[in-house]
Amino acid sequence: MAKIALITGATAGIGEACAHLFAAQRYNLILTGRRADRLEALANRLNDKYNVEVAVAAFDVRNRDSVASNLESLPAEWRNIDVLINNAGLSQGLEPINEGDPDDWDRMIDTNIKGLLYVTKIVSNWMVNNGYGHIINLGSIAGKEVYPNGNVYCATKHAVGALSDGMRIDLLKHGIKVTAVHPGAVETEFSEVRFKGDSDRAKKVYEGFTPLVATDIADTIWWIVSRPAHVNINEITVMPTAQATGTNIFRKS
């Protein structure tokens, strides 16, 4: 019987890369994201290429009722989830705290923390009933340190780390693994979203060095999931060779 992985934020970047890699490993997939057209197109590509079953659910993780209605409407056989990848997340703005936009704060907190909780609440109960499962939470180097003007984003990713530790304790007796993955600079849509569509500013973030790409993190996640049953990777930080800390990056002139 094929295993099942649920991936949030699957329409681009790390989530999409994970979808391809897990499909290649013969997992059936539940893919979620805000952009229904992208989800459907991805599902069709995965089905054609890997001959796996793919269910899609278009919703914003910030909307608790939408999360619940979409997930709870899945057929019973789709609730036997082996792996949950809480990938949906974002950053908005890069300003000092006194100049920050409260709307940006709300979007980051609601997506990175509350959205993760809404999905985990439902899926973890299914895993408890099944007696197995592995939850992967996408954190960030911003969850291991704090950098100038990163204030609220860093706070949300620190929360992901704390929630991962708490989940691991709470779900221990149910045999459910929990891992936090903390990437450094990964060239995806991340910076373009942070800078609200300013692609020129986003490109400058990755100039002068070789950043990680989405498949690097997907490969890491697969390695974590494929460890023996008695092995859990509690957390892992993955950085480009050129990056030592969140802001310490060696750029070639």
Rank of each mutant, 00 (worst) to 15 (best):
D200I: 15
N87W: 01
D82A: 05
D104A: 07
N63W: 08
R194C: 13
V160I: 15
A57E: 06
H174G: 01
N137M: 12
V160R: 05
I81E: 02
F59D: 02
A142I: 05
E187Y: 02
R251L: 13
M167E: 12
E145D: 06
H182Q: 10
P148F: 09
K3F: 01
V123W: 04
I97E: 07
G246P: 04
I249D: 05
L29F: 13
R107L: 10
Q243G: 06
F190A: 02
S124A: 13
A155C: 08
E189D: 14
D200W: 12
E53H: 06
Y118W: 11
E95Q: 15
S124T: 12
V186G: 09
P148Q: 12
S226I: 03
Y206P: 01
V61T: 07
L71G: 08
A2F: 12
M108P: 02
A185Q: 10
F22N: 01
R38D: 03
L6T: 08
V67D: 01
S66P: 11
N234P: 06
G131Q: 12
F209D: 02
L42V: 09
L172I: 13
R227D: 02
V160T: 04
G100M: 12
H158L: 12
G93D: 10
W105M: 11
R194N: 09
V54P: 01
V83L: 14
I169H: 14
L90N: 08
P102R: 09
N86T: 11
I81P: 00
A55Q: 15
H20S: 02
I81A: 04
G246K: 08
E16K: 15
R79K: 15
R26Y: 11
A76W: 04
E189S: 07
A10S: 11
P240H: 12
G208S: 05
A155F: 14
A43G: 04
I97D: 04
N129L: 05
F195I: 08
L31R: 05
M108S: 04
D106Q: 15
P240W: 00
K196N: 07
H134D: 09
I221G: 04
V123M: 08
E72S: 14
G246H: 08
G246M: 13
V67Y: 03
I135K: 00
V152K: 01
A162G: 14
W126Y: 13
R194Q: 13
R26K: 14
L42G: 04
N28E: 09
G13Q: 06
G161A: 04
L138T: 03
M239H: 07
L90I: 10
K173E: 14
G139H: 11
I224L: 04
T179V: 07
S66N: 14
T245E: 07
K157W: 10
L171I: 05
S69W: 12
R79M: 13
L84W: 05
N130G: 10
V128A: 07
T247N: 15
I7R: 01
L29R: 03
G143D: 05
A10D: 06
W222Q: 09
D65G: 01
A180M: 04
A36V: 11
K252P: 03
A202V: 01
V225L: 08
G246T: 10
L212K: 03
I109C: 12
D216I: 01
R251K: 14
T32Q: 07
R38K: 14
S66R: 08
K177W: 01
D101N: 15
I176H: 11
T179M: 02
G131Y: 08
A155D: 08
I85E: 00
T156V: 06
I97F: 15
E192I: 07
H182P: 00
